[in-house]
């Protein structure tokens, strides 16, 4: 006996096996990301009142680059359209057209990951520095024209540096939610000095860390969720690439099976897109 309904749908359910499987898998994925979103809510509700970075455990706002995030959202949405077009092309029996649309999809996926890596790198070179007087600044280190990653106060003291040069962010470049009062600019230069360079004595610094997961719960959940989403994008892109470029033979012998594979892969791809549609407003905008 062969396993039935691997390609043709079962009459009473109207579905072939893989389609049931992928919907169940997506249900578990909903629970996975649902747990992360719930954790996000709980951590954020539990964060202290006040403004980050002045209050270390307050929730930061506006640290992420919204134009880039919006662009990345558009990239993923385009890929979701093209993955459907690719499936339609297969339904029409046009393998070449399928491969073209799928190539666009995979290119979008890789583009998304490249942009995300750029954003990560941007965070790893961005620092929060707390001073003995209780104030805190954020900005990029300037070490002989370089902007190093992952430094901590220990790195600075190990290198026996008397002071570090910092391109300080203008504090109100961060947006704050409606109704929240913006903090006063508390360093010289004020609002007009874009990224004022400032020498900070090592002896004045109590804490220095890049925007890495350990810096705060916002960073922790931001990196964990976007990294996990990135893994889904990468995994999806690899599978779709396999379906696209190693499927010529299956197209000739069993085209319906290939079409099903693309449908199932497309469902997963839409899900990955959908997660981002939630993730983008939650971490970038709110």
């Amino acid at each position: 006996m062969e396993i039935p309904y691997t390609v043709k749908p079962r009459p009473d359910t109207g579905l072939y096996n893989a389609k049931v499987g992928i919907w169940l898998f997506l249900a578990s994925e909903v629970m996975l990301f649902g747990a992360f979103f719930s954790s996000y809510i709980l951590l954020r509700v539990g964060a202290l009142d006040g403004f980050w970075p002045d209050v270390p455990t307050a929730w930061p706002h506006g640290l992420l680059n919204i134009p880039i995030g919006t662009f990345n959202t558009a990239v993923l949405i385009i890929s979701s359209v093209t993955v459907v077009m690719a499936w339609v092309a297969l339904k029409q029996g046009n393998f070449k057209k399928f491969q073209r649309f799928m190539t666009v999809t995979i290119a979008c996926a890789l583009g998304f990951l490249c942009i995300k890596s750029y954003e990560y790198n941007e965070k790893f070179t961005h620092y929060v520095i707390r001073l003995k007087d209780g104030s805190a600044v954020t900005g990029h280190l300037d070490i002989d024209g370089h902007s190093p990653r992952f430094w901590t106060l220990a790195t600075v003291t190990e290198k026996k540096m008397a002071s570090v040069k910092v391109h300080v962010d203008v504090p109100n470049q961060f947006r704050y939610p409606v109704g929240m009062k913006r903090p006063e600019a508390h360093h010289e230069g004020g609002e007009h000095a874009e990224h004022a360079a400032r020498e900070i004595k090592t002896s004045d610094i109590t804490f220095l860390q890049a925007f890495v997961p350990a810096t705060g719960t916002f960073f922790a959940i931001y990196f964990t969720m976007t990294f996990l989403h990135g893994l889904h994008v990468l995994g999806g892109a690899i599978v779709l690439a396999y379906f696209t470029y190693c499927s010529k033979k299956m197209w000739e012998t069993d085209p319906e099976r290939l079409t099903n594979r693309i449908e199932v892969g497309g469902l997963f791809w839409h899900f990955v897109d959908l997660v981002w549609i939630f993730l983008f407003p939650v971490v970038y905008l709110l």
Binding site: S28, A35, P213, G216, T217, A220, T224, L228
Partner: peptide, 22 residues
């Protein structure tokens, strides 16, 4: 029921390895 524990496991792993504070 298992995926939320997977999420929790990932977060505790990040807490242990990357020293976050979930």
């Amino acid at each position: 029921a298992f995926p939320p524990l997977e999420a929790a496991g990932v977060m505790q792993l990040v807490d242990n390895v990357l020293k976050t504070s979930f």
